[in-house]
Each structure stands twice: as C-alpha cells, then as structure tokens.
Simulated assay, not measured.
Amino acid sequence: MIKNSLDKEKINRIDKSGLFTEYENWTNQAKNAIEIEPNLPKNQKFDNILFVGMGGSATSGDIIQSWLRDELKMPFEVLKDYKLPAYVGKTTLVIGASISGETQETISACIDAKTKRNATVVSISAGGKLQKISEKNNIPHTKVRMALVPRASLLYALLPSITLLKNLNVIKSPKKEHSDIIRLLDKQGKAINKNIPLETNTAKKFAKEVFEMASPPTIYSSQTLYAPGYRFKASLNENSKIRAQHILLPELCHNEIQSWGKNKDNKITSIVLRDENESQEQKARFESLNTLLIKMNIKPLEVHTEGKTQLGKIINLIYLLDYISLYLAILKKIDPTPTPHIDEVKNRLKKSF
C-alpha cells in the first residue's frame, strides 16, 4: 500500500544517506546563510551582471532572475556553460557559484572573465578548486557551508548572493524577504516532513498522485515561476531518477499544446505551477490550458504559491516541490541521494581538466 510506503520507518530504510534530514534543516540553513557576509570586489562600477553556475548552484541565479525580473534596472543573465557571452568585459559583474567548488564550467568561466575580459569577478563555494583559483587570481571569494549534496545546499549559494547584491547597492535591503522565508520554511517544514502522515501531508499526497499517473511529468509555469519549474524538473531527475520536462507559458500555447492527444502515446502527467498574484493575462492562459487538458482526458495537477514576498513564495514553492521529488523516490524504492550517471561523467571529465 502507498500509505505504508511513505511512513517514517520505510523512508528511513530507503533514504540511507539521510537526505531527508538535510531538508528538515532548511529553516536553520536559511538563518545561517542570511548571516554570511560576502567578500566584495574593489571595483564596484558595472552595468550588467552574469551569474555563472551549474545544477543546484545555478538555481540561485535562476531564482534571482525570476524574483527581480520586474525590478532590476540592469541586465542580469545566468550562464550554464564554459563560454562567456561576447558582451562580458570591464563593466560586467561576474558571480561564480559552485557549492562543491569543483564545477569545471564555473571555474573556467570565472578564470576567463578575470584574465581575458578584465571583468569584476566574485566567487562563492564551500571550498574546492574554485576557492584556490580565486585566491590565486585575486578574486574575492566567499566560503559557505555545504549540506550532504550541493542541490540540498541551495540557500547557502542563494542568500549570500542576494546579500552581495544588496551590499553593492544593486538591490534594496531584503530584510522583509528574509523574514518571510524563515516564516514560510518553518511552517512548511512542520507540515510536510516525513513524520506527518499521508492524509495530512500535501507533499506526500502530491507525490502519490504523480506516482499513480505513471508517465513522465511535464511541468508548466509562467516566466515568473521559471526558477521553481526548472528546479522541480531537475529534482525529479536527480532525486526521483525520472525523466521530466519544463515548458513555459504562454509559449507552450503556440506549439506544445498541439502535441496533446487522447491516444496512449500522448498521455502526460501535467503539473501546473500557479502564482497567487499572476496577471489577468496569465490567469486567462492557465484557465484555457486547464480546460484543454481536461478535454484531452489529462488531469492537471496544480501547485500554488504562498507567501508575502515574491522571493519567499519562490523559495517556499521550491521547498515543497523538492520534498515531492523525495517522496516520489521513496515510492519508487530509490535512495534519492546517489547520482551515479552524473558522477561517472564528472569523473571522466576530471582527467582532461
């Protein structure tokens, strides 16, 4: 029975590495990360920002971009690659984030930005090669903690990055957002942790629905919730070990929806992320989307944001979605922590880096 599959004892037997414990500690992780004071660059004159990272570290850049897209007055881009865009130069602030400190793409981009483009570069990691190379090249480095795995250390990369932007006068003080984040994580953590039974646990119930649909999930969101949508796709890949895709609205209304059909091959698990403050245009699109899904005999599973600030809503939604991916792993009888395929590729590349 699925109910018994998600009880605390069963979870502890499958979660051999203890990843659930890391998520139970997210409120404390947020409190600790808020207190970190990042090292600042001497040159504080720039007119564009490039956030460099991969995987869970890049999520921090995605969150900042989603959060500030309607407020930030200068270009902000997230790079998930080795090669720098052509515009990067003297007036660019490059933030290189790699929780492990071993991410090749981030290290390479930071070195090139500093030595070849004369950009203003700062870095964030829990140590590793990124810290060593930063110190060697006079790049201001901020050392943070790392949880069991980088993807569970999200707040250690995100919140110091936000403090950095505040201290460089790019954004206003995030005190209101900090309070909202702590409140939301504390409330959410008490409601969806492994001790809470299926009947009253939103994350467990949602994971059960996804598991029973038995088809690769497709996540739909607006640009406003791009960060939680893409993060959920990645968490389903890494924690649940299942394929998933993330598609943005309204773009999907111009292509994706034509692929839907009633035949067996077109069946999908549709997960729709909704913002409580979405615009009338977004609301109309989502309602039309759901109507069409139902017409195609596809049940849309909706998840809604909660919070007083946009940043708080984004982080709280990610927290819920990450928990769903963990419970889905348990239902599949898979330890959510190990990522052997990713490790194999990284180990092969180490020999040439």
Rank of each mutant, 00 (worst) to 15 (best):
V121P: 04
V122P: 00
S123C: 08
S123G: 09
S123V: 03
I124Y: 01
A126I: 03
A126S: 04
A126L: 00
G128R: 01
G128L: 01
K129G: 06
K129E: 05
L130I: 06
Q131S: 09
Q131R: 12
Q131T: 09
K132R: 08
I133P: 01
S134R: 09
S134D: 04
N137A: 12
N137C: 13
N138P: 11
I139T: 04
I139D: 01
I139Y: 00
P140V: 14
P140N: 14
H141F: 05
H141Y: 02
T142Y: 00
T142F: 00
K143S: 02
K143M: 06
V144T: 09
R145I: 13
R145V: 14
M146D: 08
M146I: 12
L148H: 06
V149N: 11
R151I: 00
R151A: 05
A152S: 12
S153H: 01
L154P: 02
L154V: 06
L155R: 04
L155I: 06
Y156T: 10
L158E: 02
L159V: 10
L159N: 03
P160L: 09
S161V: 03
S161R: 09
S161W: 05
L165T: 01
L165M: 10
L165D: 07
K166C: 15
K166M: 14
N167W: 07
L168Y: 01
L168G: 01
I171R: 12
S173Y: 11
S173H: 09
P174H: 04
K175D: 15
K175V: 11
K175W: 15
E177K: 07
E177R: 11
H178P: 10
H178L: 14
H178C: 11
S179F: 09
S179L: 14
I181K: 11
I181G: 05
I182F: 11
L184C: 10
L184H: 05
L185E: 02
K187T: 11
K187E: 11
Q188T: 15
Q188E: 15
G189T: 06
K190D: 02
K190G: 02
K190R: 10
I192N: 00
N193D: 03
N193P: 04
N193Q: 09
N193V: 01
P197T: 00
P197W: 03
L198C: 09
L198W: 10
L198I: 03
E199G: 08
N201T: 00
T202C: 15
T202P: 14
A203S: 12
